[in-house]
Amino acid sequence: MRQKTHPLLIAFAALTFAFLIGPLVIIIGTSLSETSYLTFPPEGLSLKWYENIFEISAFRRTMVTSFILAVGGTALSMAIGIPAAYAMARYRVQLPAFLGNIYVLPILIPEIVLGFSLMKSVAIGADFPIMAALFVGHALLVLPYCVRVVGASLNAFDFSIEEAAVSLGCPRWKAFFLVVLPNVRAGIIAGFILAFITSLNDVSISIFLTGPGVSTLPIQLLAHMEQFFDPTIAAVSVLLMFVTVGVMAIVERTLGLTFLTK
């Protein structure tokens, strides 16, 4: 006997899906239109707006910048985040509990406030070059993801394993690389990907830190929109979306998405 589902529940579920999927369908449709203005349903079918992304040098340039920034910022953040997460998991008893919360602050503080204060301190105050300021800003932005996701892995790690390695003659620093890191690899990959996506799609931090000659793809998208209202915007959005979905698919295939919600 099958459990009967209430029709209203089905209706609500359908509505929620429509609400989530609808805009994506519209934007994909719009990006395929032949017209030079945004319209849905698309009139005609063409990939010329996708070609257009690569013809406009500003998009090409910022795309590269965004990728370098996402990889570099995340790497920098991991370099800080992994040791921090390790220390907090390893010395959970000895360290005060609020320390863990400090690393979540970049999520709790409105991003626009974070962006503004970074501009005041790093870009203007410390007079960092634009690219360096962006690296620092993005590293800070994604730090919570690195610390939390790697931390979740480390909290599940039995530190007797590390002690076993040490007792067998392996110095502490070497044991970290030989037995700790390989066993929290899944957390590091998941954290890296989450951070990468967050950095790639960021607007509010970047908008304060970009400057003459250096911009990121989402910022360039905004700039483009102010002058042209053509389906290129939709095409770039779809492209960003697919990179995100693609990366998520890799996570799902290798680790399972449930990993991210743990």
Binding site: D158, S160, I161, E163, A164, S167, V179, P182, N183
Partner: peptide, 11 residues
Amino acid sequence: LVFQTYALFPH
């Protein structure tokens, strides 16, 4: 050393 949790290297 032999541990209560065995502490074998899982990988």
